[in-house]
């Protein structure tokens, strides 16, 4: 407690960002420290779990320390610690969990585990201070493409998800093939801005009528075949055009299905979350399609879309306020479901 505000420290190490943040009253970001390892993993073309674990360990103390000092508080002021305990890379998760437990024990602070995906959704509470459930959530990231009905804080009903690749994964793969490299999502987004989204007629995969699931592997194969054909025909490939066409095929289906889900469940708001939620084309398209149906679209600013400790703190705050029991026996659960 400081100045009458309930302070939560959020810790996040599920993949390649070592992050910690102090959040007041579950809503107000007082500090948000993110130490990214992207520069290290770029040499390997993707995240190497063992290296990610080693780097998290080297950085975790300073990241926590800076989160406290940036917020101008000390550990004594912290009322609650929240930490991501899954889903994610097990070796990466356990650094955050072990650190959180050590701090909770040393400073007598209650600790709750947070589902990383609940965290992504909670990022919106930090951005939109009046937002409360219920709403429809769209989670798009490197590992997830999911439509989730959110009736209450930290309650999630999964309505649909990807049957093969996640959207971010598909972006990563195509980015690698057309030479944009890692991380694929932001690079595709940037290249697409200079390209023609109708240069290649990539299919939109909607699956069975009414389905809220996704499938991107067929589209990926089609894109690979297209690139092959162009090369065989001796035509030069315009990277920006391919990026724009591929991105459009992905985001159009996502936007349509998110709007369909909101309509079906009578939700007036779609809340976006996850790294790919910062894709500028997806943000624009979904706003346009939802707007036409009178549905609001809320999204966190890009800094809160990426993995961060603030979203974990917010989710922890609501879990704790809703009666979640603190525990020092928390374990990492790499395959944690919603």
């Amino acid at each position: 407690m400081k100045d009458g505000r309930f302070l939560t420290l959020g810790i996040e190490t599920s993949c390649d960002e070592t992050a910690a943040s102090v959040v007041a009253d579950g809503r107000f970001v007082m500090s948000n420290v993110i130490s990214s390892q992207i520069d290290i993993h770029t040499a390997y073309g993707g995240v190497v779990p063992e290296i990610a674990s080693r780097k998290h360990l080297e950085r975790i103390n300073d990241v926590i320390g800076k989160a406290l000092s940036d917020a101008d508080v000390t550990a004594k002021d912290i009322d609650l610690i929240g930490v991501t305990y899954g889903p994610g890379l097990v070796g990466a998760l356990l650094i955050g969990v072990a650190a959180a437990k050590a701090m909770a024990y040393a400073c007598d602070i209650p600790l709750v585990g947070v589902n990383h995906m609940h965290g992504h959704i909670a990022a919106n509470y930090l951005e939109h201070h009046d937002l409360e459930p219920p709403f429809m959530a769209l989670i798009v990231s490197g590992g997830h493409t999911e439509i989730v009905n959110v009736p209450a804080y930290n309650k999630c009903e999964k309505l649909g998800g990807t049957r093969d690749d996640a959207a971010g994964e598909a972006f990563d793969k195509i980015a690698r093939v057309i030479g944009l490299g890692y991380p694929g999502g932001p690079k595709i987004d940037k290249a697409a801005k200079e390209g023609d989204p109708e240069s290649a007629a990539f299919k939109r995969v909607y699956l069975e009528p009414g389905s809220l699931d996704f499938s991107f592997s067929g589209l990926k194969t089609q894109a690979l075949n297209y690139l092959n054909q162009e090369r065989m025909a001796g035509r030069e490939i315009n990277v920006n055009d391919v990026a724009a066409s591929f991105q459009e095929a992905v985001v159009e289906v996502i936007a349509d299905k998110a709007v369909m889900a909101a309509e079906k469940y009578g939700q007036k708001r779609i809340v976006m979350a996850g790294g790919v939620a910062s894709n500028t084309r997806l943000r624009a398209l979904i706003a346009e399609k939802a707007g036409a149906k009178g549905i609001d679209v809320l999204k966190p600013s890009p800094i809160l879309c990426t993995d961060n400790g603030a979203m974990i703190a917010s989710a922890a705050y609501y879990a704790y306020k809703n009666g979640e029991e603190p525990t020092l026996e928390l374990d990492a659960v790499p395959g944690l479901e919603f």
Binding site: L57, N61, I64, G91, I95, A99, A102, Y105
Partner: peptide, 12 residues
């Protein structure tokens, strides 16, 4: 890693 992180954060 579990032991070292626990020790580091407790010491901190």
């Amino acid at each position: 890693r579990i032991g070292v992180v626990t020790a580091r954060v407790m010491a901190q």
